[in-house]
Design a protein around this nucleic acid. Structure first.
Lengths: 264, 264
DNA sequence: CCATCTTTGTGCACGCGTTCACAAAGACAT
DNA sequence: ATGTCTTTGTGAACGCGTGCACAAAGATGG
């Protein structure tokens, strides 16, 4: 009853795999750094190292965009910056509204990463009348009553939700009704949206929990001993995982490439 | 030359797939909500809806933890909350340090989601002497000179980096040297860490860029016709991907389950 | 005790993403 | 021009994750 948006097709947008799209910003950042250092060209191997990915993956990613490299030489940094920027839609201006100007919302408003790359904070919106008019990061907060008006006037299509979980869905509904079709959600809730609206979710608590899982496992393994702490019915707290530490070094990074931040 | 940590094995921690681990916090949140409403049992279908996932996927996820359900009835909410909490290592206390108390760091310090679920902000650390001693979210900021001491004394194994990108790697190195084995990185940089250390990355800018990509695609499709702002030489804009169908509602959400927040 | 009904747990198939490995392409030197 | 050397672009194989569909399990009612 909640989501209504159960299985998803993992659509491949215009032939570019989602996994690739998610990495393009990473490449772009690395390329921008090279550009600032006036590096003219870069090989897939170098760029891959800078972006923290496998070079074959990088080449395949770029192959979805076209053949922008020169065999025997590498990629032209400036050209690639332009192509990726264009592909990501960063050559145009994206007005963004941030709803919920609490600690997090205020931090986001002042976050440099937003302002860079074509994103412009068009408005800060909060439901608290006491906040209205107060400047945050140089932008005056507006009251949520005007949400629809603001979105329409500025042609905003991307909204950031930084409200408490309780009102997130409701804010989301209003944003969507007003015309927003992409939402970045910081509230710890599953948002339900109609088809055609993108939602990406960032949940700090979830990230920590995932780290805790691996951390616990590391501690447990190191404590060595026999099997799993659990397996039994209860076992209560697996007992103090001895103050881990000591990089044994051999641990094979319990990573993997999993979300935690994902659509819907 | 940066990472030094190229290909990764996508380790399957103790038999539990990473993808599943990443969803456990999601289930836990939904279950906690049910628990607060004193709901005794829940079916996979209901819980899946609340968590925004497919019910078959949820059942398979739980099957990795063991057989905690009762056929014909469903899952016992309280029991499941306990099992998942234990599996994630949330039954113990995790002291966390936050390094870099700027806008974002301060917001994180005050973020409720941290304090909940077993995570305790053990210390706030900043390199600015002017910040030292100043209380943020009720916790006095300490100078980064004492970083190692703080980590050792409190047995901190999880660190949060909220510094500018320029010093992130350096802070990371110190954290790792001091014994931290899990890092949540908010700085827009690829961190290089030794094996055995987990890094999860949250990049707000990347999330927005991914949204922009889909947003552009939606706009392009709608505008149908020409498109290609440039196209120029090569493939250029493969010109109107046949103006897909309109918003006939049939738009199949350009989602997919991709990171943007991921290890390393 | 048996029948029926609900819901779990999972075998299986499919598709996406990753990685390897190599041929094609071009730069560069001779 | 021709040969060599570097690096791209990609075909193919593999593995993980997802979702279907169903048999097994147990609750419930007669």
């Amino acid at each position: 009853m909640a989501t209504g948006r159960t299985h998803r097709p993992a659509t491949r947008s215009r032939g570019i795999p989602e996994a690739t799209v998610a990495r393009l910003p990473l490449y772009l950042r690395a390329l921008t750094a090279l550009s600032e250092r006036s590096v003219p060209t870069v090989s897939s191997e170098e760029l891959a190292a800078a972006a923290g990915v496998n070079s074959a993956k990088l080449r395949k990613d770029f192959s979805y965009l076209g053949s922008y490299g020169t065999r025997g030489v590498g990629y032209d940094v400036e050209y690639l910056v332009y192509q990726i920027s264009r592909e990501l839609g960063l050559t145009q201006d994206w007005p963004v509204v941030i709803v919920g100007i609490g600690n997090l919302g205020a931090a986001l408003a002042g976050y440099g990463g937003f302002a860079s790359r074509g994103f412009r904070v068009a408005a800060l919106i909060d439901a608290d009348p006491a906040m209205t008019g107060k400047p945050v990061a140089g932008i005056p907060v507006q009251h949520s009553d005007d949400l629809e008006k603001i979105i329409n006037e500025d042609g905003v299509s991307i909204g950031v939700i930084a409200t408490p979980a309780g009102v997130a869905q409701q804010v989301c509904d209003r944003l969507v009704a007003a015309g927003v079709t992409s939402i970045l959600n910081f509230a710890p809730t599953v948002l339900s949206v109609p088809d055609g609206v993108d939602v990406r979710k960032v949940d700090l608590s979830i990230e920590l929990q995932i780290l805790a899982f691996h951390e616990q496992r590391k501690a447990g393994e190191e404590a060595g001993a026999e099997s799993g702490p659990d397996s039994g019915t209860d076992t209560g707290a697996p007992a103090a995982p001895p103050a881990a530490r000591t990089a044994g070094g051999s641990r094979k990074g319990p990573d993997g490439d999993v979300p935690a931040v994902m659509p819907a």
